[in-house]
């Protein structure tokens, strides 16, 4: 029995037993290599679920849909390790109750999709530990290093050019599980701190604010990068911030459901390298 079959059965069982009211998973997309989210509410529908190496989106973002969990009923969701980390952060930030989330965990290695044992976020603690010890993505680091080697002026020009493409569609925000504010700061116009115009200042303001709001919270699922219709390499900005918080504060986002937010906590031994 393949993993897809196994998880379809599991989803059917969860639904028919009433253990969950909804299964959020992947279904066929508009092209053979695309998957789209499907929301399965009865055991009869589980055949719509697809699970293979194209299932890359971080579905945890759907958990924060307004009102979804307010009836106290459980929801099952297909998640890769990055998604499990997102659930941990959302739990730590009181946006979801981890007891209400049943995780159908899986991993993708090349073409292979393998199941991850465990059903609750807390079951994945050993996985989180191994993820932490393997650190941030070396591929992203290689890409980031290329930018690090540029002079400040060159780097500024690079990002100016990248951000100039930004059309302020906020797809990066919509896809991100961390962007759960009911009113985003960019929508505040009294006063309008963030310029929505497509000039250099406005472009930088939005993208830098987004990066700061993700500092110590991004799990590198790559959702924003894939969602961006003009291909701004947002992953590199997020990676840079993650590296910073890991190097300075030893903070690996989404390690556990009781992890404190890195920018809101203070320890006696925090380095003070930013004080001149």
């Amino acid at each position: 029995m393949g993993i897809q079959e196994q998880y379809r059965n599991e989803a059917a069982e969860l639904l028919s037993s009433g253990a969950v009211k909804l299964v959020i998973g992947y279904g066929g997309g508009s092209t053979p290599d695309r998957r789209r989210p499907v929301f399965v509410r009865s055991a009869e529908e589980v055949s719509r679920l697809v699970l293979d190496s194209y299932c890359v989106a971080n579905l945890s973002a759907y958990l924060i849909s307004e009102g979804l969990l307010s009836d106290g009923k459980n929801v099952a969701v297909f998640l890769k390790p990055d998604g499990i980390r997102s659930v941990n952060i959302l739990s730590a930030e009181a946006q979801v109750n981890p007891d209400q989330v049943v995780i159908l965990g899986f991993n993708i290695e090349g073409e292979q999709t393998t199941p991850l044992p465990g059903r609750k976020a807390a079951d994945y603690a050993p996985l989180m530990e191994s993820l932490r010890s393997s650190g941030l993505s070396p591929e992203l680091q290689r890409e980031a290093d290329r930018l690090e080697q540029m002079s400040a002026v060159e780097r500024f020009d690079y990002w100016k050019e990248q951000f100039a493409k930004c059309i302020k569609c906020y797809a990066c925000r919509q896809v991100c599980p961390m962007c759960y504010c009911r009113r985003c700061i960019v929508d505040v116009n009294q006063p309008q701190w963030i310029n929505t115009s497509s000039h250099t200042l406005g472009n930088f303001e939005w993208n830098i604010v987004r990066a700061f709001h993700l500092a110590g919270r991004c799990v590198a699922c790559g959702g924003c990068d894939r969602a961006c219709p003009v291909n701004i390499p947002l992953r590199l900005i997020n990676h840079r911030m993650s590296k910073e918080t890991l190097d300075i504060f030893g903070h690996f986002p989404g390690e556990s459901a009781d992890q404190k937010p890195v920018l809101a906590t203070f320890r006696q031994d925090d380095p003070e390298t930013f004080i001149l």
Binding site: Q95, Y180, R182, R183, P261, L263
Partner: peptide
């Protein structure tokens, strides 16, 4: 009240 997302970051950050 209307815009607070209840993440409690401020609760932790407040010295």
């Amino acid at each position: 009240d209307s815009t607070c997302a209840g993440c409690w970051g401020c609760v932790i950050a407040c010295p």
